[in-house]
Design a protein around this nucleic acid. Sequence first.
DNA 1: ACCACAACCTGGCCGC
DNA 2: TGCGGCCAGGTTGTGG
Length: 283
Amino acid sequence: MPELPEVEHIARGLSALLPGRTVRDASVTWERTVATHSAEGFIQTITGRTFGPVSRRGKFLVLDLPPQTVLIHLRMTGGIHLCSGPRDDWEDDAHVHVKLTVDDGGKLYYRDTRKFGRWYLVDDPMEIVGDLGPEPLSADFAAGDLSDILLDHRRQIKPLLLDQKMIAGLGNIYVDEILWTAQIHPVRRSHTLSRSQIERLHRAIRSVLLAAIERGGTTVRDYRDACDQMGAYQHVLCVYGREQEPCPRCGAPIAKLQVAQRGTHICQVCQPEPREEALHDSI
DNA sequence: ACCACAACCTGGCCGC
DNA sequence: TGCGGCCAGGTTGTGG
């Protein structure tokens, strides 16, 4: 579910509430959620520790818990909810797999229907996020950096953008939105893009992600932020989930196809299919 | 280097 | 109503 904007929004929500709080109690009801420890070992290790700053790297939520760090990847259906009141809807939820009680009685719930999400407790975050590509919203991610990545490979642009080792944080929804915005077909080979297309793509990556963060992310189904609120970016999606609806730019019906085994939404007019030779073109 | 596919899980939706 | 099949915001490992 969550891509960069959703994780960023959750991180901001937790930043306001979690730092300075001490873990008093913890429970883990789906053993495999904690990838680095047994449930027992994890609970013993973190109890009594106090949270420091909360941040994000790619799609990972990063919780400082000196002297170590907790990294959380929400995968498809993971969600975090921090409740300060005495009770909460999540208390008896069958899909809550981790629960932390902090010193003022507040509770942090981790809910994950499909159980794909993972928690990591490590000495050095680089053990987990060391292979990630650059942060697309960082000030030093320039069009030239994107160009270096694209020209260094001969892959279809969509799977390349989804590859976290290339650029960190993009997922299926935002890649479809970004490619529509930049008017680039998802199977276009990365090394065949022109200078101006790369600049358009660079601008689209940043503008789409920033707009999505501003609206608190996209809720297709499960996603809720740290305060259990839905996002609002789903209301302004241009192509994702809009098969058959008119393209906001030209009015042609949005088409759905498979690219890299992922459902993919495009406007066939605004994002024309590359010629065969451009697909296989060398040099 | 790049791609296809299965696996990890559950639930919702569609058609019969 | 029930059941099978397909779909889903992600990642990893295997094999071609």
